[in-house]
Design a protein around this nucleic acid. Structure first.
Lengths: 161, 161
DNA sequence: TATTGTTATACTCTATAACTATA
DNA sequence: TATAGTTATAGAGTATAACAATA
């Protein structure tokens, strides 16, 4: 489809001038553009969640617990694609702040069932609204159709990788 | 444009069933999909570059040095959006492997001018070809038009953030 | 006084192994 | 024997402060 070497051969000719240095040579690697877009969105989200004392990952965990009451940590780790061992500290913090509760699953006492508390649901709702409002600043330049297209294309990239 | 809370209210109704747990509640946050697509692409790229003993970041640095001969580390750090102090170790490794060379800029002796060696250019070319071939596996499901659209949309997300 | 490259350091994120309790 | 949760730890990646050389 695209030849990344192209930029080096015909596009920007290598020049002995540091002032004109650009990242054009990396732009044919879609991962490069993905990373930069992700980094920008992540910075944006981090700032939006800061007033709620939530990091992006703890917000994601809280949101998924609100949406999936009773979810066990193992399933949550699987969805978030992080190690169970690394999820523990996130859950610990959410529980300490009384945003979620841990209770043993009666069917399988190895498992915990995670539930958001009323306080947790309320915080999640406010944080989600703030995050959405902030996200609007980024995607306001896209039409509704373009936004749906972007999500669809990202989904296909994700599934292909 | 989109209301992330929607999924919780009308889409997937919170069910006391861990088996049906999904990440649908996070899908209205474009950063979530961006991260997953980026992570997949990064894993893919890491694997493609492994035979060349290059990490994604050192490949990016080498590629930009090949494309921009004489670029100083400060400009390279700026383009890659990393701290100068963290770039030092990357440049050190590329120089130790004799893929690039450091020489003082005669105009401004504070600066270095970075150049790829012949060996460095050859390795970059081979690695870029392997990375592109591997990338094809991901984007082969997209038409040429969709691929260009994706890159354009990512660019606009990046610029808006 | 400001900038470039550098070192040292700390903090976050991620990955792995081993343990316990349950199945 | 296998799985869920947990602990400890090591490795990346990232951010900050301070310094020497140069402008």
């Amino acid at each position: 489809m695209s030849q990344p070497e192209k930029a080096l051969e015909e596009g920007t000719q290598p020049q002995e001038d540091a002032g004109t240095a650009s990242d054009e040579a990396m732009r044919d690697f879609v991962g490069y553009s993905l990373k930069r877009a992700y980094m920008g969105a992540h910075r944006n989200a981090t700032e939006a969640l800061e007033p709620f004392d939530l990091r992006v990952r703890s917000f994601s965990a809280l949101t998924l617990i609100v949406a999936n009451p009773g979810i066990p940590p193992s399933r949550l780790a699987e969805i978030l694609q992080i190690e169970r061992s690394n999820l523990v500290v996130i859950i610990d913090e959410l529980e300490t702040r009384e945003l979620i509760s841990r209770s043993r699953d009666p069917q399988d006492r190895r498992r915990f069932a995670l539930h958001a508390t009323l306080c947790g649901r309320q915080l999640q709702e406010k944080a989600a609204a703030a995050k959405s409002a902030r996200q609007e600043e980024i995607i306001s330049r896209l039409s509704a159709g373009e936004y749906e297209m972007l999500k669809s294309l990202l989904r296909r990239i994700e599934e292909g990788a």
